[in-house]
Nucleic acid binder design. Structure first.
Length: 291
DNA sequence: CACGAGACCTGTTCGC
DNA sequence: TGCGAACAGGTCTCGT
């Protein structure tokens, strides 16, 4: 579930606390369990366990798709990758939970089967980082800025103006779709929202960035902000039945709607591959294809 | 240096 | 029903 709107939704939920769950801010980390070593980008697990213990969670922020937990001394950076999710759970320590090997492994039968890393929070609570595909990364650093150094502007910030976007577009010849996915170009846009943004802007995913007119750049700027804002308002998009609270999926115009009618003109939505990513668009509404 | 391809992972769905 | 192929919300690294 992890593009900017999803990560922002998670951030807000962790800040506010939820029914039956404690707020994260103010809680002390009593210990850590690492189930898949590569989930922890840095430092090495023994150092991580020693260093994170005793620190208090003081604030929760987001930059691009990174969740930043400001601790007493360090910053815990969490990137959910493709399939990562966070869960406040109560019960026995994850590390002490006996592995029940049933014949048929179904996700629903073992909620912590994909838990890769866990923080003990006291009162029996823990924060579990689940990640079936193991693309997510957690790091504990004294200074998060080097990791975030090459990330582009936050699309919902004041500094991200239409003029800034237009100027940046001129520097690239790549397909718009690829460029929107590039985190150094603009922060937080992923495959779902890149497609949705381009449809809203009426621009073909393969349109070369340096051929975007000023009027088109402005339309793209509006679309990026409108789509991301709206997605946040609906708590993101999710296809997960268990945490099916992201309602933006009901507002998708092209993503995973191959063959279904465009909501604007009725033309069947097409799926192509751009930059090795599945790309959905309306061949009638979205102009500017090369050739 | 900008860009594209392959790698990293596991699970689910599709097509024959 | 079975089995391989294709596909899935994201970055990294490497070669051109």
């Amino acid at each position: 579930m992890p593009e900017l709107p999803e990560v922002e939704t998670i951030r807000r939920r962790l800040c506010d606390g939820r029914a039956g769950c404690p707020r994260l801010v103010g809680r002390r980390i009593e210990g850590a369990w690492v189930g898949w070593a590569r989930t922890l980008a840095e430092p090495a697990p023994p150092v991580f366990r020693r260093r994170v213990r005793g620190q208090t969670i003081e604030r929760i922020e987001r930059r691009a798709k990174h969740l930043l937990l400001g601790l007493s001394r360090d910053t815990l950076m969490i990137h959910l990758g493709m399939s990562g999710s966070l869960h406040l759970r109560r019960g026995r320590d994850r590390g002490a939970t006996p592995r029940v090997r049933t014949r048929i492994h179904r996700v629903a039968e073992d909620p912590v089967r994909y838990c890769r890393l866990s923080l003990r929070l006291g009162d029996g609570w823990r924060l579990d980082f689940d990640d079936p595909r193991k693309f997510g990364r957690v790091r504990l650093v004294s200074d998060p800025t080097p990791v975030l150094r090459d990330i582009g502007p936050e699309p919902l910030s004041r500094g991200f103006t239409a003029a800034v976007l237009a100027a940046r577009l001129r520097d690239h010849r790549r397909a718009l779709k690829s460029l929107l996915l590039d985190q150094s170009f603009v922060a937080g846009v992923g495959n779902i929202y890149a497609d949705e943004v381009l449809h809203r802007a009426g621009l073909h995913p393969r349109l070369r960035a340096d051929r975007v007119t000023p009027a088109q750049a402005r339309a793209l700027w509006r679309a990026v902000r409108a789509v991301l804002r709206e997605a946040i308002r609906w708590n993101g998009t999710t296809f997960d039945q268990v945490y099916g609270e992201g309602d933006f999926q009901r507002h998708l115009r092209v993503y995973q709607r191959t063959g279904r009618p465009c909501r604007r003109c009725g033309t069947p939505i097409r799926r192509i591959v751009v930059g090795q990513r599945g790309t959905h668009f309306c061949p009638r509404c979205q102009v500017g294809s090369p050739r």
